[in-house]
């Protein structure tokens, strides 16, 4: 009987899979950035209750949260080319649909999906900053942009960080579905490699290890940032040198 489970292969195929890790990471980073920026825009639109845009934002978030990510990836993969064909037809342009790499569709779908979830987190975090600090900042003469950048965001980030870290972890794992847009990231690579020797189980085990190590590292990074941003438990005392400085 041949070996049912080849433990050695689980580890020996990891280096081969890691060659595709940059694709996974690139996809994650771009989708996370799209998600954060668009999420912030949606959050602000909903907080300011801007007519029309606010209703559109609510509908968008509802649809994005109410449909599976794999369906969204398919819609992006097939929908964007159709949209471009329409544009080509009506505007007389000549965009080459086949020239668009699959990863773009995956970035769009994952980024939009991410923005829907992030927008709720960001909105809750922004609203948690108490009005008093905002009034104080305005009284000092800060513009709305300065108040947002200097006062609201620094505090809102500490509130939002744990949830955003969660959603980033979900996103990393979500990129494993990008093969639906013909993107070869590590999961797709695992399947392809396993196709050579039919050792699918071993390949999936290797993938599980890689994803787990990746998210474990990410958890640590998020925790470290959280600790850094937190107001320290104990205040730093004024040293003598500072006291002299203050007398100058």
């Amino acid at each position: 009987m041949t070996k049912l489970f080849d433990l050695q292969l689980v580890f020996s195929s990891i280096p081969e899979l890691l060659k595709y890790l940059p694709t996974t990471l690139f996809l994650t980073v771009i989708a996370a950035i799209i998600g954060l920026l668009l999420g912030l825009v949606i959050a602000v639109i909903r907080m300011k209750n801007i007519p029309v845009l606010s209703q559109l934002a609510v509908a968008f978030v509802s649809v994005m949260r109410g449909t599976p990510i794999i369906v969204q990836l398919y819609i992006s993969y097939f929908g964007i080319p159709i949209l471009l064909q329409y544009i080509n037809y009506y505007r007389g342009t000549e965009y080459n649909i086949n020239a668009i790499p699959g990863i773009v569709f995956a970035m769009v779908a994952l980024g939009l999906n991410q923005s829907a979830f992030d927008s709720e987190t960001i909105r809750a975090a922004l609203q948690s900053v108490d009005k008093g600090q905002i009034e104080a900042a305005k009284s000092l003469g800060m513009s709305n942009g300065q108040v947002l950048r200097r006062i609201i965001l620094p505090e809102a980030i500490t509130v939002a960080l744990p949830s955003l870290g969660n959603s980033l972890i979900a996103l990393i794992k979500g990129t494993s579905l990008a093969f639906t847009c013909s993107v070869v990231e590590i999961t797709a690579a695992g399947k392809i490699l396993a196709g050579r020797n039919y050792r699918f189980f071993e390949s999936y085990c290797s993938l599980a290890i890689i994803y787990w190590v990746l998210t474990f590292a990410l958890e640590k990074v998020v925790a470290a940032i959280e600790k850094r941003l937190q107001v320290p438990e104990q205040p730093r005392q004024v040293k003598e040198r500072d006291a002299i400085l203050s007398k100058m």
């Binding site: 600090q133 009034e135 104080a136 009284s139 000092l140």
Partner: peptide, 14 residues
């Protein structure tokens, strides 16, 4: 031209 001192202090917490 003005600055304000508030009942609830409203210092920047961060």
């Amino acid at each position: 031209y003005t600055e304000m001192v508030f009942q609830q202090f409203n210092l920047f917490r961060q």
